[in-house]
Nucleic acid binder design. Sequence first.
DNA 1: ACAAGAGTGAGAACGATTATCGGTACTAAA
DNA 2: TTTAGTACCGATAATCGTTCTCACTCTTGT
Lengths: 156, 156
Amino acid sequence: MTAESLPVLDDKEYLAEVHLQIGARLTRQEHRYTSGRRQLVEVLAQAKQPMTLPDIVAADPDLAQSSAYRNLDVLVRSGVIRRLSAGGDHAHFELAEPLLGHHHHLICIRCGSIEDIHLGSDVELLVDQSLSEIASQTGFTPIHHSLDLHGHCADC
Amino acid sequence: MTAESLPVLDDKEYLAEVHLQIGARLTRQEHRYTSGRRQLVEVLAQAKQPMTLPDIVAADPDLAQSSAYRNLDVLVRSGVIRRLSAGGDHAHFELAEPLLGHHHHLICIRCGSIEDIHLGSDVELLVDQSLSEIASQTGFTPIHHSLDLHGHCADC
DNA sequence: ACAAGAGTGAGAACGATTATCGGTACTAAA
DNA sequence: TTTAGTACCGATAATCGTTCTCACTCTTGT
């Protein structure tokens, strides 16, 4: 079901798979997978890192700002795109974890760029255990965790 | 130097210590520790969780909104207060880690509230190692990490 | 073909935060 | 203790990312 469990795919196959899964999910929620939404997904799927709205519109100038915002919201609500609030001026968007796999971020506090990183499964396991233990003590219902490293990127 | 390394203090002593350290730090940077800033710090020091600006002003109505925002900014820049961007409408503020100790957050995605949590040192160690390893491979200069658990709080 | 309703995009509106600005209050030197 | 220099204050205006409005268009089902 997730991208991770699929056999290795080249870029074109991956994109097709992404569209397939997202289309199915939207249909299930009585939403349409229109060309505007498809373009949005395409931009994000081809990016190697989370993008802001200006990034997205710059990458595909056919996208209208208001529609992009609205569709991003629809896709976030549908669970296929994730919105990141890293503290900069703009929110960042990336494909949701079912499509991209579980990962974390390097956040540059100077230029605001965000890069994906993957941690070893031993770390993930320990973190998960530790967090869910605390959550259960507090009556908190965990949904997901985020682990970000803040600092200066190589370019800054 | 940090609050953690101090002997156990009651609330009044802790507050005095906080004021002392912050005052010293501001003076060093040619800023004044005025009563408005002191009130701001007092509100945050007495809170058990990160607060938004409306929270802060509600807790001490003498604080003017514009001054509170300006002073919060001064204090953040001076490194004595930390600004959290959790995705809700408002940013949250709390005393910086030298004063509060290293910790993480439970973030309620329904009501936006944030609560502090502390993880075991074994987890912290492993996370730190793992992150700095990745950082060094990427040319990223780490400053600090954040590890948040998102979900629904007990009240929601 | 038609009706119902989802989607679109330009522009208006919103709201958290930041900047402005005339006036206040420390601070240090004479 | 004056006086100058400057940090600070708070009401208000301005900024700007994001959301809303609305007239219009496109799909889908009958």
